[in-house]
Simulated scan of single mutants.
Amino acid sequence: MTLKEKQQEIVQDFAFLEDWEQKYEYIIDLGKELEGLSPEKKTDANLIKGCQSKVWIDADFKDGILYFNADSDGILPKGIISLLVSIYSGHSTQEILDSDFDFISQIGLQEFLSPSRANGLMAMTKQIKFYAVAFQLKK
């Protein structure tokens, strides 16, 4: 499945949810499915700056494909980073760099979040793009 198809699938999933309470529960459930990171991966280098909660993201680059895993000490941020990991993990650096984050506004996520959480979401998306740029340069 392409990155764009994954984004569209998330938009469709959110369209079936009637209100923000259901959307909130869906995001939290996504976080519960996240594998998480081992304690040795929860380093300052993997910590995303700008998040209200602690959020860590780790990336592996194999055969031209980026794989992400993440964790958070907060249930909502863990769900949000899980959503991003499910979309962006398993794609080439170029596909990630060519993608946008329009699906976030399509599902209304930024409007639902407090300003500090919205800033954290932006920090998460920037970190994913940063990894894509860094590994693109290593090719």
Rank of each mutant, 00 (worst) to 15 (best):
S105I: 05
D60N: 11
K4F: 11
I96Y: 10
Q127R: 14
F61S: 02
F135K: 00
M1E: 04
L3W: 04
D98P: 08
L66R: 08
V11P: 00
L76S: 10
L83T: 06
I81R: 10
K4G: 05
I28R: 01
K4M: 09
F103V: 07
K62E: 14
K49C: 03
P77T: 06
L47W: 03
P115F: 07
M122G: 12
A134V: 08
M122W: 03
F135G: 01
L109Q: 00
E111P: 05
Q12G: 09
W20P: 09
N46C: 06
N46T: 14
S53W: 04
S99R: 00
E18K: 15
L113N: 10
V133P: 02
D29K: 15
N119W: 05
G74N: 10
T2I: 02
F130C: 03
F68Y: 15
E5M: 07
N119V: 01
F61Q: 00
P39Q: 13
Y26D: 09
E40H: 12
Q110G: 12
R117V: 07
I65M: 11
E95K: 01
I104E: 04
G90A: 13
F14H: 09
I96L: 10
Y24E: 08
F14R: 05
E33A: 15
G108R: 07
D58R: 02
L66W: 08
K49I: 10
D29T: 13
I57R: 01
Y88Q: 02
I107M: 12
S92M: 06
A15K: 15
I104R: 11
F14E: 12
K42I: 11
S105G: 13
D73A: 07
Q110M: 12
K4W: 04
C51F: 00
G120W: 05
K78M: 02
S38L: 14
N46R: 06
D13L: 10
K6F: 10
E18T: 15
G79W: 02
G64V: 03
T125E: 06
D29C: 06
I128K: 10
K42G: 09
I27D: 13
G50C: 01
S86R: 15
L97W: 07
I27G: 07
S53V: 02
T43G: 13
L34P: 05
S86Q: 14
Y24M: 09
V133R: 13
I75V: 12
I128H: 08
I28E: 00
P115C: 03
Q7K: 13
F103K: 08
L109H: 12
I75A: 04
L121H: 01
D19G: 11
D73F: 09
M1F: 00
K139Q: 14
E9W: 11
Y88A: 03
Y88F: 14
A45W: 02
D73P: 06
S72P: 07
E9M: 13
G120N: 08
